[in-house]
Protein backbone atom coordinates (compact mmCIF):
# COMPACT_ATOMS: atom_id res chain seq x y z
CA UNK A 1 0.00 0.00 0.00
CA UNK A 2 1.37 3.37 -0.99
CA UNK A 3 0.41 6.46 0.98
CA UNK A 4 -0.27 9.91 -0.40
CA UNK A 5 -0.81 12.81 1.97
CA UNK A 6 -3.86 14.87 1.12
CA UNK A 7 -3.49 18.46 2.36
CA UNK A 8 -7.11 18.29 3.57
CA UNK A 9 -7.56 14.69 4.72
CA UNK A 10 -4.08 13.56 5.69
CA UNK A 11 -2.22 10.40 4.66
CA UNK A 12 -4.35 7.90 2.77
CA UNK A 13 -3.92 4.86 0.56
CA UNK A 14 -3.07 6.14 -2.92
CA UNK A 15 -6.05 4.16 -4.25
CA UNK A 16 -8.28 6.86 -2.71
CA UNK A 17 -6.86 9.39 -5.19
CA UNK A 18 -7.20 10.10 -8.88
CA UNK A 19 -4.27 11.37 -10.92
CA UNK A 20 -5.13 14.63 -12.69
CA UNK A 21 -2.29 15.31 -15.12
CA UNK A 22 0.80 17.51 -15.27
CA UNK A 23 0.51 21.01 -13.89
CA UNK A 24 0.83 23.61 -16.64
CA UNK A 25 -0.62 27.12 -16.54
CA UNK A 26 -3.47 27.24 -19.05
CA UNK A 27 -2.92 29.58 -21.98
CA UNK A 28 -5.69 32.09 -22.62
CA UNK A 29 -8.10 30.25 -24.97
CA UNK A 30 -9.00 33.52 -26.65
CA UNK A 31 -5.43 34.30 -27.61
CA UNK A 32 -4.24 30.80 -28.48
CA UNK A 33 -4.18 29.40 -32.01
CA UNK A 34 -5.40 25.80 -32.57
CA UNK A 35 -1.84 24.49 -32.80
CA UNK A 36 -0.85 25.95 -29.44
CA UNK A 37 -4.09 24.73 -27.92
CA UNK A 38 -3.39 21.18 -29.19
CA UNK A 39 0.07 21.43 -27.65
CA UNK A 40 -1.47 22.39 -24.31
CA UNK A 41 -4.20 19.75 -24.36
CA UNK A 42 -2.52 16.68 -25.86
CA UNK A 43 1.24 17.02 -25.38
CA UNK A 44 3.09 16.28 -22.17
CA UNK A 45 6.54 16.79 -20.73
CA UNK A 46 6.33 13.21 -19.39
CA UNK A 47 9.48 13.98 -17.44
CA UNK A 48 11.49 11.16 -15.88
CA UNK A 49 12.27 12.92 -12.63
CA UNK A 50 10.55 15.36 -10.31
CA UNK A 51 7.27 16.69 -11.66
CA UNK A 52 4.42 18.84 -10.36
CA UNK A 53 1.03 17.32 -10.99
CA UNK A 54 -2.64 17.51 -10.12
CA UNK A 55 -4.28 14.95 -7.83
CA UNK A 56 -7.82 14.62 -6.55
CA UNK A 57 -8.88 12.94 -3.33
CA UNK A 58 -11.92 11.14 -4.68
CA UNK A 59 -13.93 10.79 -1.48
CA UNK A 60 -13.85 14.55 -0.83
CA UNK A 61 -13.41 15.76 -4.45
CA UNK A 62 -10.49 17.82 -3.15
CA UNK A 63 -8.01 18.87 -5.84
CA UNK A 64 -4.43 19.61 -4.86
CA UNK A 65 -0.89 19.50 -6.24
CA UNK A 66 1.97 17.10 -5.63
CA UNK A 67 5.67 17.07 -6.40
CA UNK A 68 6.61 13.51 -7.22
CA UNK A 69 9.62 11.69 -8.59
CA UNK A 70 8.38 9.64 -11.55
CA UNK A 71 11.42 7.34 -11.46
CA UNK A 72 11.28 6.34 -7.79
CA UNK A 73 7.57 7.06 -7.17
CA UNK A 74 8.60 9.11 -4.15
CA UNK A 75 6.27 11.98 -3.23
CA UNK A 76 8.33 15.01 -2.24
CA UNK A 77 5.44 17.17 -1.04
CA UNK A 78 1.76 17.86 -1.53
CA UNK A 79 0.17 21.28 -1.25
CA UNK A 80 -3.14 23.07 -1.66
CA UNK A 81 -3.96 24.60 -5.03
CA UNK A 82 -4.46 27.91 -3.22
CA UNK A 83 -0.65 28.25 -3.13
CA UNK A 84 -0.81 28.85 -6.88
CA UNK A 85 -4.38 30.04 -7.41
CA UNK A 86 -5.62 32.84 -5.17
CA UNK A 87 -8.43 34.21 -7.24
CA UNK A 88 -11.37 32.93 -9.20
CA UNK A 89 -10.60 31.85 -12.78
CA UNK A 90 -13.37 32.64 -15.23
CA UNK A 91 -13.72 30.84 -18.52
CA UNK A 92 -15.78 33.50 -20.25
CA UNK A 93 -15.59 33.17 -24.02
CA UNK A 94 -15.01 36.35 -25.96
CA UNK A 95 -18.07 37.37 -27.86
CA UNK A 96 -17.69 36.99 -31.56
CA UNK A 97 -18.09 34.47 -34.32
CA UNK A 98 -19.83 31.35 -33.06
CA UNK A 99 -19.89 29.52 -36.37
Amino acid sequence: MKLLTCPLNGPRNISEFTYGGEYHPMPDPNKTDPRQWAEHVFFHDNEAGIVTEWWCHSASSFWFLAERNTITDQVIRTFEASELFNQRVDFAAESGDNS
Binding site: E39, H44, D45
Partner: peptide, 18 residues
Amino acid sequence: GASSVVAKKAGIRLPIHC
Protein backbone atom coordinates in the same frame (compact mmCIF):
# COMPACT_ATOMS: atom_id res chain seq x y z
CA GLY B 1 8.58 3.19 -22.50
CA ALA B 2 11.28 5.85 -22.99
CA SER B 3 9.96 7.64 -26.07
CA SER B 4 9.50 11.05 -24.45
CA VAL B 5 12.93 10.91 -22.83
CA VAL B 6 14.75 10.01 -26.07
CA ALA B 7 12.69 12.35 -28.27
CA LYS B 8 13.49 15.20 -25.91
CA LYS B 9 17.19 14.76 -26.73
CA ALA B 10 16.24 15.63 -30.32
CA GLY B 11 14.12 18.54 -29.10
CA ILE B 12 10.79 16.82 -29.77
CA ARG B 13 7.84 16.88 -27.35
CA LEU B 14 5.34 14.02 -27.63
CA PRO B 15 1.69 13.50 -26.58
CA ILE B 16 2.66 10.60 -24.34
CA HIS B 17 2.37 9.67 -20.68
CA CYS B 18 4.21 6.60 -19.40
